[in-house]
Amino acid sequence: MRLRSTAAVIVGALALALPTAGPSLADDHGERALGTLHYEYLDASGAPRNGRILPADNDTCYLLTRTSRDEPAIEVRNETQSLAVLFDNRSCEGEAETVLQPGGRAKQVEVVSVRFKPVDDEEAGRGDNGGNGTWPGRGDQDQDQNRDDEDEVEGFVARILRALG
């Protein structure tokens, strides 16, 4: 009996902790949404596909669904009320690829994630690691750090599952 209640507490804690551990996937947030970010990417066969996200908040990193570093979004249209700061990595870190004003469009980009900022934000071109705020341009992304972060989360989940099972 104690094992079940302990397992329920661990699973509940895990459910609360994991969504804050990394970038958020955008979803339909109804009235709270900032607007819509439209993007085009190429699927595994090279066919162009359209995607969109409906971000709910500024200052949150959103992954562009069905994109990756190998298959990034190649065109983006910002139909939100915020600046769209586009990055070539999953964590919205480093220097931005480009920043789109509301109503703006970027072609011939290679982006994977976006962080929304209020239009009057002076730090909009900077990622979490700083940068000089100039765009477009690419900052160096520390891939080893990203892998370490992912490994740490996976290791944490594996330890919990071993304890439960």
Rank of each mutant, 00 (worst) to 15 (best):
Y62E: 02
Q108R: 14
N132T: 05
A44K: 10
A106M: 03
D59F: 13
D27V: 08
G130T: 06
V111Q: 02
K117A: 10
S82G: 12
R162P: 07
T6R: 12
G130H: 10
I74M: 03
D28C: 07
P102G: 02
D121E: 10
R69T: 11
G103A: 12
Q145V: 15
D128A: 12
T36H: 01
L86R: 00
A163M: 02
G127P: 04
S82W: 02
W135I: 09
A44E: 06
R162K: 11
S91L: 15
D43M: 04
N58D: 14
A15Y: 11
P55I: 03
C92E: 00
G133K: 02
F87A: 01
P19V: 03
V85R: 00
A44S: 09
R115A: 07
F87S: 00
L14A: 10
A106C: 10
A15I: 10
V114I: 06
D149T: 11
V114T: 03
E110A: 11
A8I: 13
R147H: 15
D121T: 06
P55L: 04
S91D: 15
L83P: 01
E31G: 10
R2F: 12
G12E: 10
E71H: 07
D57K: 11
N58M: 14
A56V: 12
A124M: 06
I160D: 03
A124N: 02
D142N: 15
D140W: 15
A15P: 08
S45N: 08
S24W: 07
L14V: 10
R66Y: 07
N89V: 08
R2E: 14
D43T: 05
D70N: 06
P48R: 00
N146P: 15
V153G: 04
G104A: 12
D148A: 14
G155N: 09
P72H: 03
L18H: 02
N132I: 02
D148C: 11
G131Q: 03
E79W: 09
T60L: 13
L100N: 01
G155V: 08
V153F: 01
I74R: 04
S24Q: 08
Q143P: 13
G155I: 06
E75L: 09
T67C: 00
F87M: 02
V157T: 05
S24I: 09
L25S: 03
P72K: 03
G46R: 11
H29S: 14
L86F: 01
N146H: 15
E75H: 09
V76N: 00
P72L: 01
S24K: 05
G125C: 04
D149S: 09
D121K: 06
E150N: 11
G103L: 11
D27L: 06
R4W: 14
L34T: 00
